[in-house]
Design a protein around this nucleic acid. Structure first.
Length: 618
DNA sequence: GCGGATCAC
DNA sequence: CATGGTGATCCGC
């Protein structure tokens, strides 16, 4: 087994079981060596190894007695978890096989017989199984992939295309569980319990589908879970010509692990029996578990933990050195516990945009970019009728160091001016406060602390009530061992946006006057006159370079930067602006459906009457 | 409240 | 030629 490092190929995906990992890792190292990215990964890894050393020495200081006590405490916790174990439901995790790649191969069959990946040269999103033979996989930059596989064909992403197929898939799944939850375009969970009960009453006809798209031959599926999922996968294939894999188990964590077992184009059902479950999960390498990434794996491996069973064996030490929440998570994992309710998040918590570019230190370019990102973000905010209270600037230096700077505003807003000002202030502060700051390669703007505009609040409250009440009632009797009961009651809503708009309108006007009087008076009779747009205030500038630069300098030094919404919108996107207005005036009746998201809770949420009489902890 | 770190997809 | 974008969460301070 190859050691976990930050650069080695991630071999935890399907289709990469028997590769020459030594050789692949060597090629990756060779191609990466000397890159700034590589150096940053090395720094990160060293930092983690240092932290691990600290942990290890802490462990040495524990007495045998302490560890034994911790182990007993862990056992008590595991026993309590056992009591909450719910084996009564049957979940299904559907996972489209190499989704983006499969769509592209369907569209262009010539791609079926060549190693191929979908993504940009910068980063691959996924690869087909032929390419995986070479070690080419998702989250690998194109140039490394070509190193591993010189004949690799790289196809650009086309998310609109994938969305069409995805919604076909989701629609089928919804017929088996209207409360299903999707996770990205290519994955979904469904709770089949209710469907399976109803299924026995379905006529044979209702379980019968054409064998092929336009064929008169038919195929009838039985009433078991196994056959139900075969039916789902068959229907997905009929609708999209793309295969899916599936896993079935009594909770979502296990179901997800099962969908990986017979991938691609296969399925696996895990018996809802405690011993079967424990045997299944405990043999798995820790990296297979969702929530255990490279860093966590590195830390656990330093404790000689490779498999889930090793987590169990080291439960005493883990209890002593890990955060309580991490310990809980690990205990649930090694006990085969997982969520048995599909949770849908009520409201998105942040919105943002970021972009990578060729490294630059040019303040003007950076500010201009920052403005664009803010605009893009605010556009989204406005069209979704959301207000924010916090803005965050993210930058990444050419050395791949990431910084974030954020600021909470005095009140909720969706004003382009306020948000742009704030984020540019943050950026300028970094630019001239940190003279050592290397050139940047990425910038991002994100807004958080979101809330719907007040006119939409009744709807919002309706949704959040719905989700919180169900979880609280379910959790009530197991309160002592189930963490994370949400109870945020957000209810202060005034019509503050109106006031704010007025306030800032006046500031804008003031600024515009300044601009007009002092800066825009640039000779236009000059022969080498050129026109350009000031990257700071967005005014059209006429004149020679000298005067333009002078204007820009003044603008840059201005303590506040103001522009008007009207001008910008009319210059850059009159159409969207029009649409937004429509949206604003008519959408009192439109629920904020777009922002209603589906999401899962990884903690088990239910207890039931099933008791386990025997102790399973080997 | 803010910033860093980790993770999933 | 030289390693992504979006969103969430947790922890420490």
């Amino acid at each position: 087994m190859s050691r976990t490092t930050f650069l080695n190929v991630d071999d935890t995906k399907a289709g990469m079981e028997d590769l020459d990992k030594e050789k692949i890792n060597k090629l990756i190292q060779e191609a990466s060596k000397n890159s700034k990215f590589f150096k940053q990964q090395q720094r990160r890894e060293e930092e983690n190894r240092r932290r691990i050393e600290v942990k290890l020495s802490k462990i040495k200081s524990f007495s045998t007695f302490q560890i034994e006590q911790a182990e007993k405490s862990a056992d008590r916790y595991l026993n309590q978890l056992d009591k909450t174990r719910d084996l009564s439901r049957i979940f299904c995790h559907i996972d489209m096989d190499a989704f983006y790649a499969s769509v592209e191969m369907r569209e262009n069959p010539a791609l079926q017989h060549v190693p191929m990946a979908v993504g940009g040269e910068g980063m691959l999103s996924t690869s087909n199984y032929l390419a995986r033979q070479f070690g080419v996989r998702a989250a690998m930059p194109g140039f490394i992939a070509r190193h591993l596989c010189p004949n690799l064909v790289i196809v650009p992403c086309d998310f609109n295309k994938y969305r069409v197929d995805s919604s076909k898939v989701m629609k089928i799944i919804s017929e088996y569980d209207e409360n299903y939850g999707s996770c990205g375009l290519d994955e979904a969970f469904a709770d089949l319990t209710n469907h399976l009960q109803k299924r026995s009453t379905l006529s044979e006809e209702q379980r019968t589908f054409p064998k092929e798209e336009n064929s008169t031959e038919i195929i009838t599926f039985g009433i078991t879970a196994e056959e139900t999922v075969q039916e789902i996968r068959h229907r997905i294939y009929l609708a999209t010509r793309i295969t899916a894999s599936a896993g079935m188990a009594c909770n979502m964590r296990l179901a997800k692990l099962c969908s990986d077992i017979n991938k691609p184009n296969g399925q696996y059902q895990l018996e809802s029996n405690v011993n079967v479950i424990l045997n299944f999960i405990r043999n798995l390498p820790i990296r297979k578990i969702k929530g255990i990434g490279k860093v966590t794996a590195l830390h656990l491996e330093s404790l000689q933990i490779q498999t889930v069973n090793d987590i169990y064996l080291k439960r005493g030490i883990l209890k002593l050195i890990e955060y309580p929440s991490t310990f809980d998570f690990l205990m649930r994992v090694c006990n085969g516990c997982g969520s048995t309710t599909i949770e849908h998040d009520d409201l998105q918590k942040s919105i943002g945009h970021e972009t990578t570019f060729n490294g630059t230190s040019d303040s003007l370019q950076l500010i201009s970019l920052c403005r664009d990102l803010a605009k893009k973000t605010v556009d989204e905010l406005i069209s979704d009728r959301i207000l924010c209270k916090r803005v965050t600037l993210k930058i990444k230096t050419v050395n791949f160091e990431i910084l974030t700077r954020s600021k909470t505003l005095s009140s909720y807003t969706d004003s382009l001016n306020i948000i742009t000002d704030k984020v540019i202030t943050l950026l300028k502060h970094e630019l001239d406060q940190d003279l050592e700051l290397p050139a940047l390669r990425l910038m991002g703007v994100r807004v958080s602390d979101l809330k719907m505009k007040s006119s939409d609040l009744p709807i919002l409250q309706f949704f959040s009530k719905k989700s919180t009440t169900t979880t609280t009632t379910i959790n009530e009797n197991t309160h002592d061992i189930i963490e994370d009961i949400d109870d945020d009651d957000d209810d202060d809503d005034e019509g503050e946006e109106e006031n704010l708009n007025e306030e800032f309108l006046s500031i804008e006007n003031q600024y515009n006057e300044d601009c007009n009087s002092k800066l825009i008076h640039i000779d236009d009779e000059n022969s080498n006159t050129s026109t350009t747009t000031c990257p700071v205030c967005q005014k059209m500038l006429l004149g020679d370079n000298d005067k333009i630069n002078k204007h820009i300098d003044l603008c840059l030094n201005g303590e506040m930067i103001r522009t008007t919404i009207k001008e910008q919108d009319q210059q850059t996107s009159p159409q969207t602006n029009y649409n937004k207005r429509i949206n604003l005036t008519q959408s009192k009746v439109t629920p904020p459906a777009k922002r209603q998201k589906r999401k899962f809770n990884t903690t088990p949420q239910q207890t039931n009457g099933i008791d386990n009489y025997f102790s399973k902890h080997i």
